Amino acid sequence: MKKTLLTGLALTLSVGIAAAETTVQSCDRVVTFDAPPQRAISNDVNLTEMMLVLGLEDRMVGYTGISGWKTLDEEMRAGVQKLPELSSKYPSKEVIIGADADFFFAGWNYGMKVGGEVTPETLEPFGVKVYELTESCTHIMDKDKASIEDMYADLLNLGRIFAVEERAENLVEGYRSDLAAFKQDLKTAEPLRVFVYDSGEDTPFTAGRYAMPTALIEAAGGKNIMDDFEKSWATVTWEEVVERNPEVVVIVNYGEVTADQKRAFIMSNPAFADLDAVKNDRFVTLEYVEATPGPRNIRAIKTLAEAFWSE
Rank of each mutant, 00 (worst) to 15 (best):
T71Y: 06
P84Y: 10
F229E: 06
T64L: 01
T188K: 09
E166N: 14
T237G: 15
N109Q: 08
I96S: 01
E173Y: 00
A219T: 03
R160G: 03
S147F: 09
M60A: 12
K279A: 15
T23V: 14
T235G: 04
K223T: 10
A211P: 02
Q184V: 02
V194D: 09
A300T: 02
K93L: 15
E306N: 15
M112G: 08
S88D: 12
P246H: 03
T12Q: 01
L52I: 05
S177V: 02
H139R: 10
T12R: 00
D202N: 14
S88N: 06
G127S: 10
M51Y: 04
S26I: 01
D28T: 04
D228E: 14
P293F: 02
Q38C: 01
A101G: 10
E247Q: 15
A19E: 09
L275C: 12
I217Q: 09
K129N: 11
M76D: 08
M112Q: 11
D276G: 08
I96V: 14
R263V: 09
G294S: 10
W238K: 07
N170Q: 13
Y110V: 00
G221V: 05
G116I: 01
P270D: 10
N297P: 09
P246F: 08
L72Y: 11
A18V: 09
V278F: 08
F229L: 13
V278N: 04
S42V: 01
A211S: 13
E149I: 06
E57A: 14
E173N: 14
K89H: 06
G222K: 02
L86R: 03
A106K: 00
E121P: 05
T64A: 00
R176H: 07
